[in-house]
């Protein structure tokens, strides 16, 4: 029997190019984090913080730090989870919506806005909605013992439709002046309103799920083979796919229940990483996470600085992301020179 190296080697970034890209990405992420801490309606200064200005310290600790943490960790989780979805489904367009989780989160948030009070309650309701959607999709797919990939996708479509119907019903009953506007604003996605009191549990769950996904990276790659081939490589395809999707979806649920729907990050970040490295190793997944963090934090900085009122963050994730993706695609298609 061969001696087995510990699994931490999974995180070893073998490619020099990938390591370089990850280092550059991390440097950019740190710069954006610093900018994010000092961007907002209430001006913060180094001198004020160092001098112990009470108001500045309160804004820094309760609002800016938590908002920046959600941008960094949430973006990283969306990027890493997107990598997993696209690899497992062998589909470059795969995202958490494949199994209806974002629709469930939206319906949950709408119910929270209508029937509960307070931002923390809306976050909890949204998280519950996301979990319910995920649970229903996975339970429906488990009815088919064959564990086929198409079954999960079909179950996801059914759950997505159900959640959209519930959301429409909730919108119909909402007060158009106040509640309906809140629901629409939530759906557009924003990091506004995040405070240090409500994010701890979500970010911890997010970090644990992302760590598990990295540990399972080799299994994620095995799931990218066709079902019969993966089975003949010793993979219990149905069970492993469910487990991996469960962890990835939990991470996404933890983020979207805090931020509302964030478009494009989970789709673009892993694509960008793959186009840059042309690989699917753990280093590329790490780069996907870093790009996700860069995109969400960068978009959030723009969302609170380009206009007098704060704008939905999804506008900027798309505005920043789309040209970046187009450049990478054009660069990748130059072909033989």
């Amino acid at each position: 029997m061969n001696s087995i190296r510990p699994s931490m080697a999974l995180l070893t970034v073998r490619s020099h190019k990938t390591a370089l890209l990850c280092t550059a990405g991390m440097a950019l992420l740190i710069v954006l984090a610093v900018v994010s801490l000092f961007t907002g309606k209430y001006p913060l200064t180094w001198q004020g913080l160092a001098g112990g200005d009470g108001m500045q310290l309160r804004v820094f600790y309760t609002l800016r730090l938590s908002r920046t943490a959600v941008g960094l960790i949430g973006g990283f989780a969306l990027g890493a989870a997107g990598f997993v979805y696209q690899t497992v489904f062998r589909n470059p367009l795969a995202s958490p919506d494949v199994i209806g989780v974002t629709s469930g989160a939206s319906a949950g948030a709408a119910a929270g806005i209508l029937f509960l009070s307070g931002a923390a309650a809306v976050t909890a309701a949204s998280f519950a909605g996301a979990l319910a959607a995920m649970g229903l999709a996975l339970a429906l797919s488990a009815l088919d013992q064959s564990g086929k990939q198409a079954t999960i996708v079909l179950a996801g479509i059914a759950v997505h439709s159900l959640a959209q119907t519930a959301l429409m019903c909730l919108k119909l009953t909402a007060d158009p002046e106040r509640e309906l506007a809140s629901i629409e604003y939530w759906i557009m996605g924003s990091l506004n309103g995040i405070s240090g009191y409500s994010i701890g549990g979500n970010l911890l769950l997010c970090a644990v799920c992302v760590a598990v996904l990295f540990l399972l990276h080799r299994q994620v790659v095995l799931l990218s083979a066709e079902e019969g081939e993966a089975r003949m490589l010793g993979v219990s395809v149905g069970k492993l796919r469910l487990a991996v999707l469960l962890v990835a979806t939990l991470a996404v649920s933890a983020v979207v229940s805090l931020t509302g729907l964030i478009s494009f990050v989970g789709l673009l970040a892993p694509h960008g990483a793959r186009l840059l490295t042309r690989r699917n190793d753990a280093g590329t997944m790490l780069l996907g996470g870093i790009l996700g963090g860069v995109l969400l934090t960068g978009a959030d900085i723009l969302a609170r600085s380009v206009a007098a009122t704060e704008l939905p963050v999804s506008i900027f994730t798309s505005l920043l992301g789309a040209p970046f993706l187009i450049v990478l695609i054009v660069r990748g298609r130059k072909g033989y020179e």
Binding site: P6, S7, A9, R218, L222, L233, G234
Partner: peptide, 13 residues
Amino acid sequence: NPQLGLLEHPTPA
């Protein structure tokens, strides 16, 4: 893969 645990990685051998 059949010779490796869930979280293990291929050895140099």
